[in-house]
Amino acid sequence: MILEYKDILRGYANSIFYTVVGTVLNIVMTICAAYPLSRKDFVPQKFFTIIFVFTMYFSGGLVPLFLQVRALGLYNTPLAMIIPGAVSMYNVLILRSFFMTGIPKSLEEAAELDGANTFQMLTKIIIPLAKPTIAVLVLFYAVGHWNDYFSALIYLKDKSLMPLQTVLRDILIMGKIDMTSGSVDMAAVTAKLKVAQTLRYSVIVVSTVPLMLVYPFIQKHFVKGIMLGAVKG
Rank of each mutant, 00 (worst) to 15 (best):
T23P: 09
K176R: 11
Q165T: 00
I50D: 05
S151H: 09
T166D: 08
I126E: 01
T190N: 14
I8D: 03
R10P: 02
G225C: 00
G22I: 03
G61T: 11
G22N: 00
F119I: 15
K192V: 12
S15Q: 02
I16P: 10
Q219S: 13
A33T: 14
S151Y: 12
A187P: 10
D148K: 04
V136G: 00
L72V: 12
T30R: 02
L164Q: 01
L211R: 03
T208R: 04
L95C: 03
K192Y: 13
T19K: 00
F47K: 10
N14W: 01
Q45I: 12
V184N: 09
P163T: 02
D148V: 05
V206L: 13
V167H: 07
T123F: 11
Y18P: 04
A110S: 15
I51F: 14
P78F: 08
H145M: 05
I204G: 05
G233I: 06
I177D: 01
S160W: 10
L3M: 10
L153T: 11
P44F: 10
H221T: 09
P36C: 03
F98G: 00
A196Q: 14
A196V: 15
A71H: 15
S38F: 07
P44C: 05
A33C: 13
K194W: 14
K124P: 04
I126C: 03
M56P: 02
V92E: 01
G85K: 03
F217M: 08
I31L: 02
V205I: 15
T190V: 10
I127M: 05
E109A: 03
V214P: 00
A34H: 03
A135C: 09
K124L: 12
Y18K: 04
V20H: 11
P132W: 04
V184W: 07
P128W: 10
L74P: 08
Y35T: 08
S181F: 10
K131G: 04
L213G: 02
I27L: 10
R39Y: 13
I8P: 02
L153D: 05
I16V: 15
R39W: 09
A187H: 11
I125L: 05
I82P: 01
D185N: 14
I127A: 06
T19H: 05
R96I: 10
L139C: 02
A196H: 12
K159M: 14
A142S: 09
K232D: 04
G85P: 07
N117D: 15
G85H: 07
K124G: 08
V69F: 06
V24D: 00
M179Q: 12
V189G: 04
T118E: 13
L172W: 10
I82L: 01
F99M: 03
R39Q: 11
M212K: 07
N26T: 11
A196M: 13
V24M: 00
G22P: 07
T133L: 00
E4Y: 15
L156V: 08
G229F: 06
M212A: 11
L122E: 02
K40F: 11
E109I: 09
A152Q: 06
N147H: 07
R169D: 06
K194C: 09
T190P: 08
P128T: 07
S59G: 12
L74E: 06
Q120S: 14
L129N: 13
P210N: 05
F222H: 04
L122W: 11
G11E: 02
N147W: 08
Y90F: 15
R39V: 11
Y149F: 13
K176H: 12
